[in-house]
Structures are given as C-alpha cells and as structure tokens.
C-alpha cells in the first residue's frame, strides 16, 4: 500500500519510470540525483520488486515495432454462454490478455499475432467458433505520459 512507502520510495518509483541513463553505473547517477548511494538505490529497487510494488525493471519494447500486430477486441457475450465463449476465446494462443468488463460488450481481449493479416484471421476464427461478432479496436494513436505516485 502507498501508505507504507517512504517519500524516498515514492520519488524513486516516479524517477525509475523515466529513463535509466545509458551508462556504466546508471544507479550511481540516480543515487546522485537523490543524494543517496548507488547501493541504496539498488537495495531499494530490489526491495520494491520483492514487495511486488515494481513488477519489472528494464527496457520496455514496443511490441509492434518488434514486428507483429496487436489489436484490442471486444465481444458482447450473452451471460449464459460466458464461460463457454471464454474457453473458446482463451484457447487461442494469440489472445494475450482478456478482461471481463461492465458493459454489453463484456469481453475485452488483445490479440497478438505475427502479422497484420493474423489479426483478421484470428478474429474471424473466433467469430466462426462462437457465432458472435468480434469488434476490432486497433490503436490509431497513443497519448501516453506515464504514471505518477502522488508525492
């Protein structure tokens, strides 16, 4: 919980979401920004990871730029068929994430395929298997800044 985090933890969490310097001793540079030692930065990052507050520390790749295609999809699944359709949808390895949401369109998932054509093919297969329409919501533009912990 946020309440257990020290001010330094919060500042570090915010700073660490920005870029790590591409240098031999990046943690030493971050430590210098906060007036703490390199070891202290590393220990705190380790602790935050261990506590599950940070899930990952490293490069974030743009999956699309790596080759491959991604698309957010949604289906309006009748309540009584939800579990059956869920099994059919999740059986596809191309389904990376899947969330139940509060809307008539109640199943939202991301398809990840090797090629753009694979998105349409997988969506069509799911439509054939379930008899339900798959709506495609490809990302046209991203407005992203990041996430800050209230300091």
């Amino acid at each position: 919980m946020t309440s257990n985090l020290t001010q330094l933890d919060r500042d570090l969490i915010n700073r660490l979401q920005e870029d790590l310097p591409l240098t031999n001793r990046p943690f030493a540079e971050i430590g210098a920004e906060f007036g703490i030692s390199e070891d202290e930065v590393i220990e705190r990052v380790k602790q935050l990871k261990e506590d599950g507050i940070l899930t990952r520390f490293g490069p974030f790749f743009d999956a699309k730029e790596l080759g491959g295609a991604f698309c957010l999809c949604a289906i309006a699944v009748p309540e009584e068929r939800f579990e059956t359709v869920l099994t059919q949808v999740n059986a596809h390895a191309e389904v990376a994430h899947n969330y139940e949401r509060t809307h008539r369109l109640n199943m939202w998932f991301v398809l990840a395929t090797e090629s753009e054509a694979g998105i349409a093919e997988t969506a069509e297969t799911i439509e054939r298997e379930t008899g339900l329409k798959v709506l495609l919501f490809p990302k046209e533009r991203e407005f992203f800044i990041g996430f800050k912990v209230a300091a």
């Binding site: 969490i13 660490l16 979401q17």
Partner: peptide, 14 residues
C-alpha cells in the same frame, strides 16, 4: 523499438 528503460509499478500494490 524501446519505449523506455525503467520500472513498471503494480497499481494494485500502490
């Protein structure tokens, strides 16, 4: 190809 090099926080834990 790399968007950034840094940390991903767990929103639920926060």
């Amino acid at each position: 190809i790399i968007r950034r090099i840094g940390a991903a926080p767990n929103h639920y834990k926060l």
